[in-house]
């Protein structure tokens, strides 16, 4: 039986889809069988970031309505043999989702895969509720700024109130990923410190990801940043993926700003 993770944020544009793609690939690289499901109906993105944009023939709505079999709709990743995508419908919107059908689909995926990762839409409307309804755990992605934190706080509140597990009085585990940390701005006090964010949200920290310009290119070319071994953000996703596979990885400091000129200054002393 697999585990279902819902990747949520409340606010849009904080890096949910990028996180989903990278963690999916990272967990697959650890040898687990992973499926990513794009719940952002009508605004499909996950296929792009995985470089699978022209491979989508059948999507999750086709599967739920029995217009296609699950095997036909699952798209295998170019980057790992045990990573699959179930794409969102581009034509239908969130009203196409019916709770019973979502439940059945997730139950089927849980039997086939070790990790089922659901990419939630931004906001907290019905599409979001369908995503969290049958999740075993949630991964909350935030940026170190107040609006992202407040929206995430609200989204966590809804998970606690509406998720099926919560209604059965079981704990819904919630993990935090702080994305797009700019060390220079944290040092200068312009960005919230991760300690403050953890105090406010009171959930477990899964990892911190520094801001990395290479992510934009990685998304545009459909090669998730985790494949780029030089990238700090890629390394951070790698560490988080290992943690999700139960491997204890030390937390690294991505918030302290290493002034690149520091070594230069010291060297200049000896000249």
């Amino acid at each position: 039986m697999g585990v279902v993770f819902a990747v949520i944020s409340g606010k849009g544009g904080v890096g949910k889809t990028t996180t989903t793609a990278n963690l999916g690939l990272g967990i697959a690289q650890e040898g687990k069988k992973v499926v990513l499901v794009d719940f952002d109906l009508g605004q499909r993105n996950l296929d792009l970031i995985l470089g699978l944009e022209n491979r989508v023939i059948y999507d999750m709505v086709h599967v739920m309505d029995d217009e296609a079999g699950l095997k036909q709709a699952l798209i295998k990743s170019k980057h790992a043999d045990n990573l699959f995508l179930l794409a969102a419908s581009q034509t239908k919107d969130k009203t196409a989702l019916v709770q019973e059908k979502v439940k059945k689909l997730i139950a089927t995926l849980k039997e086939e895969f070790d990790y089922v990762i659901l990419d939630a839409p931004a906001g907290i409307e019905s599409g979001f509720e369908h995503t969290i309804m049958f999740a075993d755990a949630t991964i909350v992605v935030v940026n170190p700024e107040v609006s992202s934190i407040r929206d995430a706080d609200k989204a966590i509140g809804i998970v606690d109130a509406k998720c099926e597990r919560a209604k059965e009085n079981k704990k819904v585990q919630k993990y935090l990923i702080i994305n797009r940390i700019n060390p220079a701005m944290v040092t200068s006090g312009e960005m919230l410190m991760s300690g403050d964010i953890l105090d406010i949200l009171s959930i477990d920290l899964l990892g911190k990801i520094p801001e990395d310009k290479a992510i934009v290119e990685a998304s545009n070319t459909g090669k998730p940043i985790i494949l780029n071994e030089k990238s700090q953000a890629g390394a951070a996703y790698k560490r988080i993926s290992k943690r999700l596979c139960g491997i204890d990885v030390d937390f690294e400091d991505v918030e302290t700003f290493n002034t690149p000129s520091l070594m230069g200054k010291i060297k200049s002393l000896f000249q």
Binding site: R150, I156, D199
Partner: peptide
């Protein structure tokens, strides 16, 4: 958490944070 709206007629003891919103 943000978005929660709590109304209590009696006395109230909250043993945790009250977040923005």
């Amino acid at each position: 958490r943000s978005g929660q709206d709590i109304r209590v007629e009696s006395d109230l003891l909250v043993l945790n944070r009250v977040n923005s919103g």
